[in-house]
Design a protein around this nucleic acid. Sequence first.
DNA 1: CGGCATCCATGAACAGCGTTCAAAATTCTC
DNA 2: GAGAATTTTGAACGCTGTTCATGGATGCCG
Lengths: 213, 213
Amino acid sequence: MALDKEEMSERVIAIAEDLIEAGGAENLKARTIATQAGIAVGSIYNLFRDIDDLHRAVNMRLLGRLGEAGASAMAELQKAGVTDTRQRLLALARAYAGFVAAHPASWPALLAFNRRQLPHAEPDAYEARLSALLQIIARVLADGSFGLDETRLRIAARTLWSSVHGIVTSGYAANSAGRQADETWEQVELLVAVFIKGLERGGTFDHAGTAPS
Amino acid sequence: MALDKEEMSERVIAIAEDLIEAGGAENLKARTIATQAGIAVGSIYNLFRDIDDLHRAVNMRLLGRLGEAGASAMAELQKAGVTDTRQRLLALARAYAGFVAAHPASWPALLAFNRRQLPHAEPDAYEARLSALLQIIARVLADGSFGLDETRLRIAARTLWSSVHGIVTSGYAANSAGRQADETWEQVELLVAVFIKGLERGGTFDHAGTAPS
DNA sequence: CGGCATCCATGAACAGCGTTCAAAATTCTC
DNA sequence: GAGAATTTTGAACGCTGTTCATGGATGCCG
């Protein structure tokens, strides 16, 4: 035959990616995939256990490309000799915002998919790809020479990441509902600026209190 | 009959709420609702245009309760004579985190639902309920006597909200994947502390550059 | 080259889903 | 109470993901 099993898998993944991008996760239908790939419906289940499994493969690709986008943004800045913490964090945030804007349906699909999978108990590969991103941020913060030890660095990186994530995603949702898109970027700039200033000033952050719940 | 049309609607909404809470949005099935409500499948479509319409009604209730939680948290603090900005923001954040924890399936369902609705073009009621929340935050920030004009106050409030949202939600997703839950709260504390310090220090924030895209 | 075994592609079939709509039942109006 | 108007009903339709007996292709060994 012309196509290896792995080649066919990749082709199906590519088709799935297009379908999700075109109409969200609910547009990922077995019969459509089969038709576009030139195979039978049943054959999909020889390549992937589920449609969810296929969606997971698509998401892996997405996360990989997001990591590449972040890493290449850092590489570009380093080549230009930029070492300013603020500019580096803004570049990372812009890489993320650009990535979300470039995948207006796939990325929300990934987020929804992740949330739906809670009882599935296989956090491995996803979290691995995510922590690669967090380490990029942590490295930038470490170079910023705030007085942060290992633990606080990790927490600060996660905080920054989650915050930018929240701004970009909820900003994106509001954006298509008629609001201006650049307000999102203003928020990111405010967050980064305030974050750096806050870390510079306080140095360490004290635990004055209020328990979780 | 025993039940008015509106009474039946509320009953169906309550059932829908339970179903979503029990198994996510995909557990909201027409036939299950009909059985539990003691009506026929078709009757649901006399009360709601869609199943999505029903889900929207559930989400409205959720957002309303979230607003109440935030407002009552503020009222409690005011009764206790607490005016510290930091404590007030932390109380709001804790109200939100508690709300998400109390609705571990409904809230993710609301988020996914909102993201799916982008081409629907009816941003009215959702955004109205959300901006009520933002105004609570803005009021707290205004009382903090940083030098923020109307516009910057709005942006700062949105930034803070989205950031806490990002931390809590992605923290919650990671939480059920085995990580400790209190790290989420550490992140919230860091964010609030750093935010206040940053606002106190910089006063205004300058636009030094980097365009959106 | 032939016989055999192993594998895999196939698509009809199944259970379940949201949604519709002609008919039945109910309620309203006079 | 008769007739009109409205609402409730559930069988039926088209769609979905998934399965599995069938048939064909491929590889291996003598």
